[in-house]
Structures are given as structure tokens and as C-alpha cells.
Design a protein around this nucleic acid. Sequence first.
DNA 1: CTGGTCACCTGGAAGC
DNA 2: TGCTTCCAGGTGACCA
Length: 270
Amino acid sequence: MPELPEVEITRRGLLPDLPGRKIDAVVVRHTMLRYPLPPALDRLLAGHILRGIDRRGKYLLFRLDPGTLIVHLGMSGSLRLVPAAEPPGKHDHLDLIFGASILRLRDPRRFGAVIWVKGQVNAHPLIAPLGIEPLSNVFSGGWLHDATRGRAKAIKLFLMDSHAIVGVGNIYASESLFRAGVDPRTPAGKLSRKRCDRIVSAVKATLGAALAAGGSTLRDFIHSDGSSGWFQMQHLVYGRGGEPCRLCGAKVRLLQLGQRSTFFCPRCQR
DNA sequence: CTGGTCACCTGGAAGC
DNA sequence: TGCTTCCAGGTGACCA
């Protein structure tokens, strides 16, 4: 589920409540996510103050004095704040207990990850190779043009390559390329500088709109019972195969690109 | 290095 | 109703 906006919304939702508070205890109910959970997590974390929550790509970084707890939500993960009395559900694998509140990790598919790093987080093998942040100023048309020279892979796959650009997942890649008017199959290296400018603007606008949409439901999102899932945004093409394009009325097409469903308007995107 | 494919795991929806 | 099949928002590992 979560792409960059959902992860960032999660982070912002937790910021008013958690930093500065002490982790009293940790409960682990399922030790195997994408990787095994760090052993003796309770001993590592209990008694320490959560100093801050940062984000790198889709990874959330919980900063403590002795180290950093990295959390990735995978495909189906979510973090919520619940009252201490709330009984855990079937897929609630990890609780960080802060007094009367619990930070609870739910992840039915268990593609997420929880990792403990003692030293420099940026040197961790999962973090070090990550690409640039799409909402930073580094991500510009000039950068994209340079980075794609000589690359044959489809632009959609390039946008989704976390070693190039972080945080752009399958939904927002389709949405961004629709906004940019670019066919997702276009070889990245063939894009003109002008089209790179358009794509960069579109990615920033798409992620920005999702952040704004999530921001409006932020408190419900973090403090809800979880039944509502992720916040909804009206998609322009994603999930709309066969339906009319919202701009021109042509049938939205669905095809596989890198084994991921890809939606686009054959008339608006060339 | 690059690009392409597979695997990890569960649940919900669609099809019969 | 119940079974089967397909599909899902991520990404590291592995291959040629």
C-alpha cells in the first residue's frame, strides 16, 4: 500500500505524540517479516527516549540514543497509535508501548521490515544505495535528463527504481506519467530535456496532492481503528482500465510493465 | 553495469 | 454456499 506520501503522512501523524516519550516495553508477536526481527528487541529499546522520527524513501527512522529502529511498511503495513487496552489483531506483529499508548505495526503480508542499526543509518546496506528524494530540489528536469542518458528501460520503471528515485511506487508512477502526458513505455534515455521537466513537475504535483489529501485526514488515519485503511485519492488512470480518460474520453489502457499493472491513456500519453 | 524475472506472504474479489 | 484463481500499493536476490 504505502508509497512515499503514505509513509510521510504516517510520520507526520506520529510527530505530535511520540518524540520525547519513553518506550516502556516492546511486544513482539511475529518475529518473521521480510527479515527476522532483531532479537531481544525489548532489551534494545525499553527505557530509551524516542528522540525523533525521520524518513528516507519509504523507510521510517525512529531515532533513539543507542541506535535507530528502521521500519518499512512493505505492501500492506501500517503503523497506528492505539490505547494500551486495545486487543491486538491477527496481523499486529509489533507493539512499542509508550505509557498509555501503543505504536502498533500491522502487516498482513509481512513484506515489511524492522531493522535495528547501532551506528550510521546511512551506511546501512538497505539505505546506502537509495536514490534521491523526489520532493527535494535535487530532483529536477536536468537531473532526470542526465540520469537517464543511455538507459533503455521504460520511464515508468526508471521512476520506480528506488536506487534512482525513492518513494515513487506503482500507483503514483502511473498517475505522474499521465499528468506529464508521457507514454510509460518510453525508453528513459530517449526523453527530451523538455519532457524530463514535465515528468519531474508531474511527479512533484502528484506526490504533493497525495500528501495534501492525506494531511486532511491525518489524525483519523493514525488514530483510527484501522478499518478504513489508507486514505483515498481520486486516481486519474490507476485502476481505471477500460474506463474513459478523464481528460479526453479515450479508453484507459492496462498493460504489464516489469510485471506491474500499468495504466495510461493512449491518446493523452505519447 | 544493465535489464529482466522470481520470490517472499496473506487476504479480498471475481469467477465458476 | 464454497471452491479456485487471480490480483495487490515493495524490493532484494539472482540470472543472462
